[in-house]
Design a protein around this nucleic acid. Sequence first.
DNA 1: TATGAATGAGGCTTCATTCAT
DNA 2: CATGAATGAAGCCTCATTCAT
Lengths: 208, 208, 208, 208
Amino acid sequence: MDLTPPRWQRRKDARPAEIIEAALALFVEKGFAAARLDDVAKRAGVTKGTLYLYFENKEELFKAVVRETVLPNLEFAELLVADHRGSCADLLWALLEGWAQRLQQSPSTSISKLMIAEASNFPELGRFYLEEVVLRSRRLFAEVIQRGIDAGEFRAVDVAMATRSVTAPLMMIKVWKQSFECCDSSEVDLPEFARFHYEMLIRGLRAD
Amino acid sequence: MDLTPPRWQRRKDARPAEIIEAALALFVEKGFAAARLDDVAKRAGVTKGTLYLYFENKEELFKAVVRETVLPNLEFAELLVADHRGSCADLLWALLEGWAQRLQQSPSTSISKLMIAEASNFPELGRFYLEEVVLRSRRLFAEVIQRGIDAGEFRAVDVAMATRSVTAPLMMIKVWKQSFECCDSSEVDLPEFARFHYEMLIRGLRAD
Amino acid sequence: MDLTPPRWQRRKDARPAEIIEAALALFVEKGFAAARLDDVAKRAGVTKGTLYLYFENKEELFKAVVRETVLPNLEFAELLVADHRGSCADLLWALLEGWAQRLQQSPSTSISKLMIAEASNFPELGRFYLEEVVLRSRRLFAEVIQRGIDAGEFRAVDVAMATRSVTAPLMMIKVWKQSFECCDSSEVDLPEFARFHYEMLIRGLRAD
Amino acid sequence: MDLTPPRWQRRKDARPAEIIEAALALFVEKGFAAARLDDVAKRAGVTKGTLYLYFENKEELFKAVVRETVLPNLEFAELLVADHRGSCADLLWALLEGWAQRLQQSPSTSISKLMIAEASNFPELGRFYLEEVVLRSRRLFAEVIQRGIDAGEFRAVDVAMATRSVTAPLMMIKVWKQSFECCDSSEVDLPEFARFHYEMLIRGLRAD
DNA sequence: TATGAATGAGGCTTCATTCAT
DNA sequence: CATGAATGAAGCCTCATTCAT
């Protein structure tokens, strides 16, 4: 009976996802340039050469990480907006609450910090992320605000500005948390802050 | 009698600052790892070797950039808070307006993006920046909010949370602007947003 | 009753030859080091792993290519010389004409270029090729020349030298053709040149 | 008194030539792909990094080797042809003798073997070499032959063919010498062969 | 003080080879 | 037999750092 484990296993289907997950972690932690493919490979449980079976080079791996990680997140929220019946305030809360939870739980949201750091080094990818994530999220919230205004539920504020007021705080807090988690124990809890933020927003937005 | 010092001497005194300025620009644009000292030197108008006359190595140069760039920005605001007579709303506005202007004009504020990216690679520096900039700013705003609450001008909100609500949006917008300036022409104007943000905040904070 | 063996079995027997043919083409085109086994496999219609069922490693494959490709070519010519009755000039022409045709048609003759490039990296193989092809060909032509001298048909030239005069031009033109076929459309036709070459030779060799 | 030798010296002017010489030797010996830049550097007395101060990459180094090494050789011969007074036979001999000497002495002539091996991997360089060396040499000899025909000194042969008859043998012998020097001690002496070759040619060419 | 040629460690990438399937 | 996923050594190349000038 041979008990020595095989030197490796064939796991063609599982590999790309495992590699992308490992790469996400290291890119987020170190940045693109400082992340070493050796470490990515080690974390994914393969060797460096294996990476090149699935990705052409470091840059393509990076792009894959962004693309694979980013996309699926917004669809649920978009459906929520499309289907909502009821007050815009409630809808806003539903969106914020859901987003805060995803920010807290899903590792994919850490890509924001990464893109902030690397967008200028990868303009094409920056455009992709901006369009597919940033602008798409904004459009979502903008629609809710506009709907609230049209319904007389909100004041006639500048929608573009209001959209930033809604989205920027949660985003920023997530980014701070990640960046300074090594040294800052004082950061606020995201879902809790979402509630606080929501109440501030409603007072700022509601019609007098 | 010519009393102006010879040109090279003036430059000699100016060198460290010039190098730091160049390094700031490149670190912000590329990140620490991807910024090449050759390019820093070129931008500073010197050669690579010269950098090592003033800074021990790349990491020390990075630390110097952060330390030199970060410090002087908050003192004025702290004085403003200490000396203010009048409503807390006015004080809040004065702070936000001044900050928005500095974010727009002073290159030193671009360090935020850099620290977001590099804090986990340089924990010591992360702590320094967190303490000297992030927490110090928060304390400033926290004090104003607390003062407003004590004076009955503001509602009795959670001060820690409210502080984030005040600071995060401007910060985030500055960071987005920088990161996506290559591809996004739609970003809002900072001082204008500061005004909008202030009005939202006041509605959220003021006592009923 | 179908007596033709199933297709895969025929292929199994044919495999080594197919691989060698593919390898010859790629080694000649790229050189030993720059030829990739992946491409050899692809051209042979198998996968990389299969190569190792038939050849121990790249170097052994290379040796097999040289050995298998080189051998059968001279026998016919040797018989021709052994059996010839008639003038040595006629024999010389028969040899040159036959050689020119083989150079033009048989892929195996492209090995010359390969050996020129790789002999110093594979001295053992160089010796093999030198002995089995170069020297053996020379002996053939040397014998004809010597026979012509002995018969009073040719001048009493230095046989070693004359042998080079006979063999080098065709060889060189074949090699040039191959090496510069990508960029040179001006190269002469081999059989035509063989005729020209023969007439030059005869004038150079014949007794006054 | 410090007797330890300096770790390195600044020799900006001498470096490129030294590197090219070292690279020539290694490329000729191993071929382009099999030659290691580490070895080139070692032979040139520098380190790998230094190569990149003078040449962009391995391919550019290769091109530089070909360009720098090959070109100066033909100019002398071209002058000889332009200035010659006397019989074309004498001129032909002068050219062949000079060429044989260069082939024997100048390391630059070993480029031919290299180009034969690599032309198909570097088509652009192949074209360059073909045009600047091969065709240019041929033009030289073609002119002499044509002149001899026009003067009634030579038969009215096909000039293109005759040119190959003149040039190919010396070239081929040089190439064989290099490729099989490790294993063949029987190769003829180049200047001696040039004389032999000349006498064969003259008999082949001269008018009856 | 300033230069920039030279270094050498370390990363990315390729590819001959192995081996689980 | 055949496959092709996985390996790992080795090569190219970059760039922070050093040091002769």
